[in-house]
Design a protein around this nucleic acid. Structure first.
Lengths: 339, 339
DNA sequence: TTGTAGGCGTTATCAT
DNA sequence: ATGATAACGCCTACAA
């Protein structure tokens, strides 16, 4: 039964107190930067801390204080660009605010119970708040009891329950993309959707349908895919087989690479024969052939906002005002007016 | 000073013990699955646990036991595919083994001190082992005292100090790529390197040089880049200006997209005029135009291996034998014999 | 098989 | 400004 490796006796407050000739309480005060300590005393304590290499023991501190300053993040274990980019933002804010981040991942297409397991692992670990970087609805039975005791932030805009928050407006993305194609003069817009397991897939599809209807056009059938370039390629073959398809809204850049490949193989040129607009603006979007017109999601800002929000909730303070996060249409070379 | 949100009084072992009519010690035994408890007693305890919604308090448990079962991971905060893919593997093993994962990120191009800060944050948090998913050498002064008290795994094969381990053979990657081009009949191979901040950049460059020398050719000057597609693009323009360049080893797929774009814009066809081989095999590699010939790094396996290794070190048991992790050359359409 | 006692390292509370 | 003392919730060691 190993204790901490080699750490026979990390110095404790008692050691520091003794070395500095003060009580542990004074050490505690100095460490936590309280003001009511004579400068001279503080200096002695700090010297002893330095000398002994003392560092607070997080477990002991949180047992005594009831606070852990741990943020939990639930992620789906696929190496998706969006996920890691959002995480960068979360980490940044957490560190700034003195929180640490622990992650619990669930398999792609995981069941509800896997999510609850992950949630419970984080709670057991002491997470004071949880960010759900994963497709999940607050409406799910079983979720309510959890978000009641632990502040939770979703990354999806949905009808929420008590204390729920969300950050990204997926609907605006789909609208931007679809209206861009329409405004170019295309009669209708086809849609290659992401995996329906993910909420944003559904939201984007619904908005796309709605925008078309608003413009008086009957939505064509959705071409389902699953976020992977492979699935985009298959969808592209489907589209290539539709002679009068001239515009496609693809739910992610990665899929757009596949779509374009399939189109080109079928002898249909992008954007001359078919316009393609996608979503994300990953680093490679500008280096596709042709460069992708896409709706940029400011992932890092999203992560920062989520972290700020959850910390506000934990500390029960007024929500920090954040710049509204707007998706942005980046027009490059994959879209054009119909021939 | 908020305590845990709404959690006025999470039930403790004492509550469970009282409800089940046993001592807290028996509760503890049941929870930790020890065998020396009468089945009937265990059942009563479990019923009480269920009833009250009891869960162990991690901080209290680790304060008492001296164990946290926390794994620390230091990552550089850029949304790189490799990083998130490796993380997936780490998480998987950690969860299987009952560990949780805490992340500390440092800025890209962070100084040594930032790394030490991150390391210290993880230690303070109670990490029993640390995986350095970041460019760092054990030889760095200041590192030795840390790895002495906390088991550490690097993701880079380097000369190591005491108790150091590493997982990926970056050198094999560069050899595979360079020899592939040479075996195709190219006279020499140019190299677009990654950011020198990252150790693998240097290792790949050195191996590339060495392989060329082994084959009796004098290495041309390195074309430096920084992992981004943009930097690849700039490097590609440089190469396009070299009339007799027919083969390039690019240190990452993302940069290869940029290189190829620049080459095409300059009227040089890939692979007819110039062959390009890169590294990683990201999901989009097969959807580049032309599809990339690349050296696949089995990132998830790497993550799994790193996690297994660090857990073995923590628990002071014999290293779990792992399948050797070999990079693999995936030949697609971006390489060909010289014209 | 079960229980009792003590302590893990810190912070909160109340004195001084 | 500083200190004494009592938790915090659990686990280890030992006793019964």
């Amino acid at each position: 039964m190993p204790r901490r490796h080699n750490q026979k006796s990390a110095p404790s407050q008692v050691d520091v107190a003794r070395a500095a000739g003060v009580s542990t309480q004074t050490v505690s005060r100095v460490i936590s930067g309280q003001s009511n300590v004579r400068p001279e005393t503080a200096r002695r304590v700090l010297a002893a801390v330095e000398e002994l290499g003392y560092r607070v023991h997080a477990a002991a501190a949180s047992l005594a204080s009831g606070r852990t300053r741990i943020l939990g993040v639930i992620v789906v274990s696929t190496a998706r660009y969006s996920t890691s980019a959002i995480t960068v933002g979360i980490e940044a804010v957490a560190t700034e605010e003195g929180y640490s981040v622990t992650t619990a991942s669930v398999a792609d297409h995981a069941t509800r119970d896997s999510f609850f397991d992950a949630f419970d692992r984080l709670e057991r670990q002491g997470a004071e708040g949880v960010i759900l970087l994963a497709p999940f609805s607050f409406l799910d039975p079983g979720m309510d009891t959890r978000i009641e005791r632990t502040p939770t932030v979703l990354m999806h805009r949905l009808t929420g329950g008590v204390g729920t928050e969300s950050v990204v407006d997926q609907s605006a993305i789909a609208r931007l993309a679809t209206e861009h194609l329409l405004s170019l003069g295309h009669r209708t817009v086809w849609h290659v959707s992401g995996d329906d397991y993910w909420l944003e897939s559904r939201v984007r599809r619904e908005t796309w349908e709605q925008v078309l209807i608003e413009h008086g056009v009957t939505p064509p059938p959705v071409i389902p895919a699953d976020w992977t370039p492979e699935s985009g390629y298959r969808a592209g073959r489907t589209i290539a087989a539709i002679p009068d398809a001239t515009a496609v809204f693809v739910a992610s850049d990665e899929m757009a690479f596949g779509v374009i490949r399939a189109l080109h193989e079928a002898g249909r040129t992008v954007p001359d024969d078919v316009s393609v607009v996608s979503v994300d603006d990953i680093a490679l979007a500008a280096y596709a052939a042709p460069a992708l017109t896409t709706v940029r999601q400011p992932f890092e800002a999203v992560g920062r906002a989520a972290a700020s929000r959850i910390i506000d909730m934990i500390e029960e303070r007024e929500p920090t005002p954040v710049e509204p996060i707007h998706p942005e249409l980046i027009v490059r070379a994959s879209t054009a007016p119909p021939a």
